[in-house]
Deep mutational scan, measured.
Amino acid sequence: EDYYQILGVPRNASQKEIKKAYYQLAKKYHPDTNKDDPKAKEKFSQLAEAYEVLSDEVKRKQYDA
Rank of each mutant, 00 (worst) to 15 (best):
D2H: 04
A26R: 14
S14T: 15
V58M: 10
Y4F: 02
S14H: 07
D36W: 11
D2N: 13
Y23C: 10
K28F: 08
K28W: 06
A65Q: 13
L25E: 07
A26L: 14
K61R: 10
P10D: 12
K41P: 10
D32L: 08
K35Q: 14
K27G: 12
K43A: 09
L54V: 02
D32H: 09
V58A: 15
D64C: 02
V53F: 03
A65E: 15
D32C: 07
D56S: 04
K61M: 07
K41G: 09
A65C: 11
Y29S: 05
S55Y: 06
Q15M: 12
A26M: 12
G8F: 04
Q46C: 08
V58G: 09
Y3F: 13
D2V: 03
N34M: 10
N12A: 08
N34S: 08
R60F: 01
V9T: 03
N12L: 08
Q62M: 09
Q24D: 15
Y4C: 01
K43P: 03
Y3T: 01
D2A: 04
Y51P: 00
K59V: 03
V9D: 00
I18R: 00
V9L: 07
A40Y: 09
S14Q: 05
K61G: 08
Y29F: 13
Y63W: 02
S55D: 04
Y63I: 04
F44A: 09
Y23D: 15
K59D: 02
K59F: 04
E1L: 15
K39G: 13
Y63E: 03
A48E: 14
Q15V: 12
D36V: 06
A50M: 03
Y23E: 15
E17I: 07
N34C: 09
K41I: 12
D32F: 03
D36L: 10
S45C: 10
E52D: 14
A40C: 08
P31V: 07
E42T: 11
K27S: 15
R60T: 01
D37C: 06
L54M: 03
S55E: 04
K16H: 15
L47V: 12
I18P: 00
S45G: 11
V9P: 00
D64M: 02
Y63N: 02
P31W: 05
Q24L: 14
L47H: 02
K43T: 07
D2M: 04
L54H: 00
I18Y: 01
H30L: 10
R60D: 02
Q15C: 07
H30P: 05
Q62N: 11
D2Y: 04
